[in-house]
Amino acid sequence: MRLINQQLSPVAATALKFAPFLVLILAYLLGSSLRLAENPNDKLLPALTSIADAVDLMAFTPDRRSGDYLLWTDTWSSLKRLAAGLGISTALALVIGVCIGILPFFRALLAPFVSFVSMVPPLALLPILFISMGLGETSKIALIVIGVAPIMIRDLAQTVLALPREQIVKAETLSASSWLIALRIVLPQALPRLLGSLRLQLGPAFLFLIAAEAISADSGLGYRIFLVRRYLSMDIIFPYVAWITFLAASADFGIDRFRRWLFPWSQLEAGR
């Protein structure tokens, strides 16, 4: 039998699914206990109990100085920045992407410019952003928009351009105006795709958020990680990384559900 035709029993498939996670946890526990046996105060691979203590300290105990619950204030600050950045990017992508896709004037005007801008490495712009927009929220949100919006615009314009020409012609023979075609032919097919590309941009958006928070902030998930990195508090960094991963995965899942609920037809077309 060829390897590509191998049939896995459901049990084996489940076991394989969990194996990499188990190996990771086991390797961690082993490495951690070895290091801790040599130095009980080791911070690099803390024991699970110290991680649990750190979670308790960050999430369920008010901070000694400010009285805030740090994990939640950090999450709230970061999510606000993320929501603002992604919201602006999505709105820009919708308007500019559709315009580029259906209007030759805007395609000639903006398509080369957007393609050019999308090649600028956003992190390299960071020092300029901080000087021109200050160290406050504006520059952090701007970084997310600059990093994410051009890609989303290009993606949406491509989707619109790839719509079957027949659909447009058909609508024209039925005497639809440009506006009506945009509204009834293009939007219903572009919007599901927009949400799909938003999902794909969650990862980069978190990357830009954390990079911006590492440079200057007084709260936020990235801020906390780079702050405690100073004294090697892996017991705080590990739960924060897990929490960020969980937030991103939930947002990914949530947006997909939202798309299915809002645009049930997009599901039919994809055949899923």
Binding site: L26, A27, L30, G31, S32, L34
Partner: peptide, 10 residues
């Protein structure tokens, strides 16, 4: 694999 992990971390 576990041994590798230990070598790397330990």
């Amino acid at each position: 694999l576990a041994a590798l992990g230990v070598l790397g971390f330990g």
